[in-house]
Amino acid sequence: MDSAVNNMVNASLAMQQAQVAQQAQLSVFKEALDGQAAHISALMETISLEPMLATSGSVGTLINTTA
Rank of each mutant, 00 (worst) to 15 (best):
M8P: 03
M8F: 12
M8K: 12
M8G: 08
V9Q: 09
V9A: 05
N10Y: 07
N10R: 09
A11C: 06
A11K: 05
A11Q: 09
S12P: 03
S12E: 01
S12K: 04
S12G: 00
L13W: 00
L13S: 02
L13F: 02
L13E: 02
L13K: 06
A14G: 01
A14C: 03
A14T: 04
A14M: 01
Q16T: 03
Q16N: 01
Q16R: 00
Q16F: 00
Q17M: 05
Q17D: 09
Q17A: 03
Q17R: 06
A18S: 05
A18Y: 01
A18I: 04
A18G: 01
A18D: 06
A18E: 08
A18R: 04
Q19K: 05
Q19A: 07
Q19D: 09
Q19I: 04
Q19H: 01
V20G: 01
V20E: 01
V20N: 02
A21S: 04
Q22F: 02
Q22D: 06
Q22P: 00
Q22A: 08
Q23P: 06
Q23N: 10
A24Q: 11
A24D: 11
A24T: 11
A24I: 07
A24R: 05
A24N: 09
Q25F: 02
L26M: 10
S27F: 08
S27H: 10
S27C: 06
S27A: 14
S27W: 07
V28M: 13
V28F: 11
V28G: 07
V28Q: 15
F29K: 15
F29H: 13
F29A: 15
F29V: 04
K30Y: 09
K30R: 14
K30F: 01
K30G: 01
K30C: 05
E31C: 08
E31S: 15
E31D: 14
A32V: 09
L33W: 04
L33M: 09
L33T: 07
L33G: 02
L33D: 07
L33N: 08
L33Y: 08
D34H: 03
D34Y: 05
D34E: 15
D34N: 14
D34L: 11
D34V: 00
G35E: 09
G35H: 10
Q36C: 08
Q36N: 10
Q36L: 12
Q36F: 10
A37Q: 11
A37S: 10
A37G: 04
A38G: 11
A38S: 14
A38Q: 14
H39N: 13
H39K: 14
H39W: 07
H39V: 13
H39C: 05
H39A: 13
H39P: 02
I40Q: 12
I40G: 07
I40N: 11
I40S: 09
S41L: 00
S41M: 00
S41F: 00
A42K: 14
A42Q: 15
A42S: 15
L43K: 11
M44Q: 15
M44R: 15
M44Y: 13
E45T: 12
E45C: 05
E45H: 13
T46K: 12
T46Y: 04
T46A: 11
I47V: 15
I47Q: 11
I47D: 05
S48K: 12
S48I: 03
S48E: 13
S48G: 10
L49V: 14
L49K: 13
L49H: 12
E50G: 08
E50K: 15
E50C: 11
P51M: 08
